[in-house]
Design a protein around this nucleic acid. Sequence first.
DNA 1: CCAATGTCAGGTTGACTGATATGC
DNA 2: CGCATATCAGTCTACCTGACATTG
Lengths: 169, 169
Amino acid sequence: MPTDRRPLKFDPIAEAGRQWAARWPLATEAEAAISIFRAYRIVLDTVEAVLEPFELTFARYETLLLLHFTPTGAMALGKVGQRLQVHPTSITNSVDRLVTQGFVERVHDERDRRAILARLTPSGRETVERATAALATSAFGLPGLDGEDLRSLTAVLRKLRLAAGDFDE
Amino acid sequence: MPTDRRPLKFDPIAEAGRQWAARWPLATEAEAAISIFRAYRIVLDTVEAVLEPFELTFARYETLLLLHFTPTGAMALGKVGQRLQVHPTSITNSVDRLVTQGFVERVHDERDRRAILARLTPSGRETVERATAALATSAFGLPGLDGEDLRSLTAVLRKLRLAAGDFDE
DNA sequence: CCAATGTCAGGTTGACTGATATGC
DNA sequence: CGCATATCAGTCTACCTGACATTG
């Protein structure tokens, strides 16, 4: 039995916001936070469905994408973790999987022999290209939003990330 | 070794957006989607840290909250799943845990004996009240956003949820 | 008989803690 | 020496699929 996805006859988050506001302060915050949780699920479900034929989760896709954006196609695992804000053991684990799939190989860093680089293989590079094309045809799991909505969304969430200490300046 | 949370010297998502735009279309969508993923992590980390002393995950807190918002403090498990968009086995699991903690009890539905209601206990009701007060003092994991930001965020994500079929009208 | 409700068994992912080998 | 890098072992939550008993 799958998750029950019949649409409700009302907006469940607006309803929760009304109930909240009748009892407690910060209903605006509560509504926004719950909206982020729901939006995350929606986008993730779509994205992972698109990536499934490539045998990629979003976490592994994001790693391939990051490597694809580097000049050499390689980056130290620790730096990958810092960029994606992912736990070191999760990086080890996800790179293990990418190595098994032949999308990435582990290479010793010449300049710092403690560090290990993940380097894209030709197969990995081709896969991230094809997966990206597939994501583009699905609007990246963001239906119904125009350019203005998307920019406003990114801008507000940038403020949040900045205040949370994701990055400086 | 924890996750490396030293702030980057640049906005990693804006950087990814530039790299994306130089290669592929839909960079605006990609940037917004990745922003949602990061925001989710930030808010979830804060919220779960606040809920930890109450021995609640956000999933279990949300269940208690939903029950708290009903007139009788009780709701059928299937309806809980539909409202929270959670898989039936996840509901069974999370209600199991709430029962063990004494926050909820299972009750047979008089009118439909297939259905089982989760019903708040006095302890559950008190816990959700105290947990909510704690969340309020942490701005619900949404630092740096004013009322305008929060409303705009909720409104844009509402368009997304509507287009994704979360609810009608 | 068919549909709906909830549960159980079993598998996957990801994130975490704590300990450890190696190199700066 | 202290610190950083990556890995390993083990735990935990959450999600999923498929099968099942019970009831409408």
